[in-house]
């Protein structure tokens, strides 16, 4: 799924840069701490000198779960427990940067294990508007669970 034909669920989370999808974080100019989403001050050293940073596209799965019951709406976009389909959620460690929480494209516990290689992608965001997308991570092709 390309960002060209889709609308991001929120501004400032991800962009297309050099033809590639990238998450948009921030990096502290003073101590180097990386956050996602970007923020205007550093949670590590309290500096207000921070810059945008495009985050790595690939990382490893640090932990995960399967959301197997329909979240309450609000805040979840969809209020239809009957039609709910379980989905995966995890933290992906981007080497040397930060661990990012994200939806996973896989919702089968047998296909997930900590340490497996993951790659950034887009998925349709929950809700009624079919062209709205959010970021997610998928197992890198050929990666056995």
């Amino acid at each position: 799924m390309s960002l060209a034909a889709a609308r991001p669920i929120a501004d400032g989370l991800f962009v297309e840069a050099g033809g590639e999808l990238r998450l948009l974080g921030s990096e502290c100019d003073r101590c180097g701490a990386v956050t996602f989403p970007g923020q205007a001050s550093c949670p590590r050293c309290t500096s207000t000198d921070v810059s945008d940073r495009l985050l790595a596209r690939r990382g490893t799965l640090w932990t995960w779960t399967i959301q197997a019951f329909a979240p309450k709406s609000p805040p979840y976009a969809v209020d239809d427990p009957e039609a709910f389909e379980p989905y995966g959620v995890g933290y992906v460690e981007l080497p040397g940067e930060v661990r990012v929480e994200a939806r996973l494209t896989v919702a089968d516990p047998d296909q997930l294990r900590t340490g497996m290689a993951m790659e950034l992608t887009l998925i349709p965001a929950p809700g009624v508007e079919p062209d709205v997308v959010t970021y997610a991570f998928r197992p890198v092709d050929g990666e056995a669970p």
Binding site: I9, A10, W62, P71, P75, V89, A125
Partner: peptide, 20 residues
């Protein structure tokens, strides 16, 4: 967006913490 995409759940956090 954090809630709309289904990540605003304490139960997920506890599951991911104990999973790790």
């Amino acid at each position: 967006w954090y809630g709309e995409t289904g990540m605003m759940l304490t139960t997920q956090f506890f599951a991911m913490k104990i999973q790790r």
